[in-house]
Amino acid sequence: MNHELITARGLDKRFGSIHAVRGINLDVRAGEVVGFLGPNGAGKSTTMRMLTGFLDPTAGTVVLDGINLADHPMLAKRRFGYLPEGAPAYPDMRVDEFLSFIARARSFTGRDIKQRVDAVIERVHLSSVRLQTIETLSKGFKRRVGLAQALIHDPPILILDEPTDGLDPNQKHEVRELIRHLGSERAVVLSTHILEEVEAVCTRAVLINSGSIVFDGTPAEMDAKAPRHIDRNRLDSVFRSLTTVDTADPHTRKATSR
């Protein structure tokens, strides 16, 4: 059951002179919800884009559910659902039309299309807006449409770039519940810069800074890295200490960040 669904080895990306991602290794099993953390510009989105094949890595390999992404992109693309940053969708399409398009793109035909669309609309609570055009939706609904298109084919792997960004607290809670539920049998990678989110939904936190992984462990282990006397925003303090640049020694880093 708990086999590796995502295996990334030595993922490296350069944009001209900028070294955005530096040899990242990542293994995610079914049942894991990995929170991808890091300051803006740390390489979170770039890494996710390489995991989904939108960007070709400068070096390294991605294997999804046993399929090498570079060798068999069409097979590998069927194994995951992806919510890109900002949840892009066609503004002039209605929600149900857009989801039907995605279902067709995912090779569903005939009655299956409607069945899939209905099921996913139910799942992410879009019934009230299913006949509205996407441009008329609030940010929260747009995000849910993005989530719906990623879930429509019930993939074993979910890659979600900031799934709760722009949602109100109730919607955030709802989406987190959904992700936690989905994560019980899938491999989920989600990026966020909200640290409570990691505690709330993730079984594992991966902290990335300047293109390298600086922490990989459970949220509890991350919490344990914070100095004992801090009792509020403990994860914040760990985040700052691990991602503040230009200090070499982690102890002095903690000292300066306080």
Partner: peptide, 14 residues
């Protein structure tokens, strides 16, 4: 402009 190119190219299309 609207970023859907990322969606399109990561769907199972060549």
């Amino acid at each position: 402009r609207i970023g859907t190119i990322e969606l399109l190219t990561t769907l199972p299309f060549t």
